[in-house]
Computed example of a mutant assay.
Amino acid sequence: MDRKAKAVVCREWGQPVQVETITVEGPRRGEITLKIAACGVCHSDLSATTGKIPYPPPLVLGHEAAGVVVEVGEGVTEFQEGDHVVSSFISMCGKCRQCVRGRPVLCENARKAMYTLPDGSVRTKDAKGESLNVFGACGVMAEYATMHVDNCIKIDKAVPMQNAALVGCAVVTGVGAVFNTAQMEPGSRAAVFGIGGVGLNAIQGCVTAGAEMVVAVDNNPAKLEMAKQFGATHTVNINDVDDAGKAVKKMTGGVDYAFECVGAGAVVEQAYKCLGRGGTAVVVGVSDPKDKTSLTTLTLPADERTLKGSWLGSARPQYDFPRIIKLYQAGKLKLDELVTSTYAIEEAAQAFDDMVAGKNARGVIIM
């Protein structure tokens, strides 16, 4: 059945988001409709409003959410009404070389569902009946969303929705960069550049993985204090040093792992610079397509350093999302503390402004 829903829509790059009443069509074969309970406000959504992530408007934002199944489409057997679900913006065909080798985040067919559902169509229309694209096959910054089952992961109903929502992006991106991409060894020394929602999760990922030293690097004193709450042992304010990379290296003797969670070539250079011999720098942040990084090539072989990327924490969503939930339930990961502000959907523009101002670990829109 079709449902009316309030949704946060990008109508034009460079303009404030709008809250509109849209129509969300019911599910087709292999799809389910969710009543969204909570949606995180992520920098990637902001990047879609500026054109940094060039998804064409009009676009329903949102990719980090939790909700309840209210309708299932033909052929769906793994979900039923009442199930609690976290959204995943990773589409996977299950058949390409990357999918079958266990790397679904690198699915060779995922680009077909960057701003539509996997079949190339959408279930969202505006008040005039015109189609609306959806961020990352999700479009979950809305009261309802119809999605393909491969973009949905069932979770324990005991987990608060506003916490569970963050697993779909911020948590798995940061924690997964440590667990999956870096495969950190216990007793390591690490540095995290950029202490937003993703950076905080990289920090707690390092702590959970057994790092002996975790240095948080940012220019916001409040964020650096927050980093300590999530397990950072040391902090560096880039405003207090001439060269953050050199400062971290002097402090640590060279880290084993550095995580860039900003999305800027210059910061990648700093993360690489602070590595010790045999160290690995992991680029997590999403940069402008024209951005570039420079490094001294000789250090790659001579020091056996590694520079690698991490997309959604190199996650296998159907495996990693429940794993993260279990770690949270066991007291090994913090989710409650990540939610520093909540907003009504009508306050979406304010939520984005607060994120840009660096006020939140994560702001969450409660439907």
Rank of each mutant, 00 (worst) to 15 (best):
G263C: 13
A232M: 10
G62M: 02
D156K: 14
D240Q: 14
G102E: 10
K334L: 07
G176R: 04
A7Q: 00
T173P: 11
K223E: 07
V105P: 01
A202Q: 02
M147R: 00
D240C: 07
N239H: 15
Q350W: 06
D242V: 07
A137Q: 10
G205K: 02
V41G: 02
V60F: 00
P54Y: 14
K4P: 03
P186T: 06
M184Y: 04
G14V: 09
Y55E: 06
A66M: 12
L200Y: 07
P118V: 06
F352V: 08
G263Y: 07
T299P: 05
L61S: 05
E212A: 15
E71Y: 09
A158T: 15
A211F: 00
L132Q: 01
I365A: 03
W311I: 14
P118N: 12
D126A: 03
A190H: 01
E337I: 06
I345Y: 03
R28F: 06
K292L: 11
V178I: 14
E108S: 09
G276F: 06
V283K: 06
A66L: 06
G26V: 01
A264E: 12
V236W: 01
V215H: 00
H84S: 10
C99D: 09
A113R: 04
K292S: 15
L224S: 11
A227S: 08
Q183R: 15
P54E: 08
K273L: 09
P289S: 13
V175I: 13
V248C: 10
G136D: 02
A357L: 13
V178S: 03
I366T: 15
D45S: 10
A202W: 01
G102H: 11
M226V: 05
A216C: 13
G313K: 04
V198Q: 04
F179P: 01
M161E: 11
A281V: 07
S310A: 14
G263T: 12
H43E: 10
I238M: 15
T49H: 11
C261L: 10
Y144W: 07
G102S: 09
V41S: 05
A110E: 06
V159P: 04
H148W: 04
C274S: 11
G75T: 08
A361Y: 06
E269L: 09
V19Y: 07
I53W: 07
A165N: 05
D242C: 05
V68K: 10
E269N: 13
K128Q: 15
S287I: 03
A247K: 02
K250H: 13
T146C: 00
C138E: 00
V282T: 13
C274Y: 01
N180C: 02
M355Q: 12
L275E: 00
V72P: 00
I195L: 13
G102C: 11
I345E: 01
V286K: 11
V175C: 09
T173D: 10
D83R: 08
A145F: 00
L224G: 04
E212M: 12
R362L: 08
L307K: 13
A145N: 00
D354N: 15
A191T: 01
N219G: 14
Q15N: 12
M92I: 02
D126I: 05
F230V: 02
